[in-house]
C-alpha cells in the first residue's frame, strides 16, 4: 500500500536539533534570516511559538512542533470513524477540530454512467456504512470555518473490514514515514504487515499474524517516543531484529 510522500521539512536526516520552547529567541539577525513556520517576529528578534525542534533551511528559521492538533488540508488522506449518520450524510471523526462530512454521492465508484451525469439513484442513501465503521477517506474541501468534505473515490480509499487502528500525535507522522518512505518500507518488510499511515495521526495496520501486528504496534510507539532523536532508522532496525529473537517470531 502506498503512502503519499509529503513535502515536509526533512527531519529524518538531521543530527540532534535544539529543542526550543515558546518565546525562546531563535535569532536576532534579521538581515540574514526570515521567520519561517512556527516562528514570529517580535521587535527585532525571531521567536518560537511551539515546543519543538529548531530547523534552519536556507534563510528560513523554522520550528517543527512536537505536539499539536491536525489541521485538515485539501488532498490529505485520513482515517475516519463514523460517529453519526442521517438520511443524507455521514459524520466522521477525523481527529481534527471539526467532524468531516461524507455524502453518499461521494462514495459511488466513478463508472461510465456516473461520468455521463446519471449517478445510480440507489446509492443516494446512507445505508452503505453504519456508525462505528472505519474508513480511509480523502479530504476534498477544507477551510478554517466549515466542516471538511470527504470522499471515498480513489485508490486505497473506502471501508476497512479488518485490521487494527492506532493513534499517535499528528506532528510525529513524518517520522513514521521517514525520508522518502524509508522507515515505512523498513516496517513493512520486517514485520510483513500492511500499513496505511494517515496524516491525521492514525495508522491502520494488518498483518498475517497476531505476533507481527503486536511487534509493529510496539515499534510504532517506540518511534513516537524517540521521534526527536537522530539515528532512528538504524535503532529501529536493531530493535525489530532483537525483539523478533526475544519473542521467537520467524
Amino acid at each position: 500500500m502506498e503512502v503519499e510522500d509529503i513535502d515536509e521539512i526533512d527531519i529524518n536526516q538531521m543530527k540532534d536539533k535544539e529543542i526550543v520552547i515558546p518565546g525562546e529567541v531563535l535569532s536576532e539577525d534579521l538581515t540574514n534570516f526570515t521567520p519561517g513556520r512556527g516562528t514570529t517576529k517580535q521587535g527585532n528578534k525571531i521567536i518560537s511559538l511551539f515546543v519543538g525542534l529548531k530547523v534552519i533551511r536556507k534563510n528560513y528559521i523554522n520550528v517543527i512542533p512536537l505536539r499539536g492538533i491536525y489541521t485538515p488540508t485539501e488532498g490529505d488522506k485520513v482515517i475516519g470513524v463514523i460517529i453519526d449518520k442521517n438520511p443524507v450524510k455521514w459524520k466522521l471523526d477525523i481527529n481534527a477540530r471539526n467532524f468531516g462530512i461524507l455524502k453518499p454521492s461521494n462514495t459511488v465508484a466513478r463508472t461510465q454512467k456516473f461520468r455521463k451525469g446519471r449517478p445510480d439513484r440507489a446509492y443516494e442513501t446512507t445505508q452503505k456504512f453504519s456508525v462505528g465503521d472505519v474508513l480511509i477517506v480523502k479530504i476534498t474541501q477544507a477551510d478554517r470555518l466549515h466542516h471538511p468534505e470527504l470522499t471515498t473515490q480513489g485508490k486505497y480509499l473506502g471501508k476497512r473490514h479488518s485490521g487494527k487502528l492506532i493513534e499517535i500525535p499528528p506532528p510525529k507522522i513524518p517520522r513514521i514515514i521517514g525520508r522518502k518512505g524509508s522507515m515505512i518500507n523498513l516496517l513493512k518488510k520486517m514485520t510483513n504487515c500492511n500499513i496505511f499511515v494517515a496524516q491525521n495521526g492514525r495508522i491502520w495496520i494488518q498483518g498475517d499474524n497476531f505476533e507481527n501486528e503486536m511487534l509493529l504496534i510496539d515499534t510504532i510507539h517506540k518511534i513516537e517516543t524517540e521521534a526527536h532523536t537522530s539515528g532512528l532508522t538504524e535503532r529501529i532496525k536493531d530493535f525489530i531484529i532483537n525483539e523478533k529473537t526475544r519473542r521467537g517470531i520467524n
Binding site: I21, P22, G23, G38, T40, Q42, I47, L49, F50, V51, P65, L66, R67, G68, I69, P171
Partner: peptide, 11 residues
C-alpha cells in the same frame, strides 16, 4: 498550553 502545542508568543 505549551505542552498541548497551542501556538503562543511566550510563557
Amino acid at each position: 498550553l505549551a505542552d498541548a502545542g497551542i501556538p503562543m508568543k511566550g510563557l
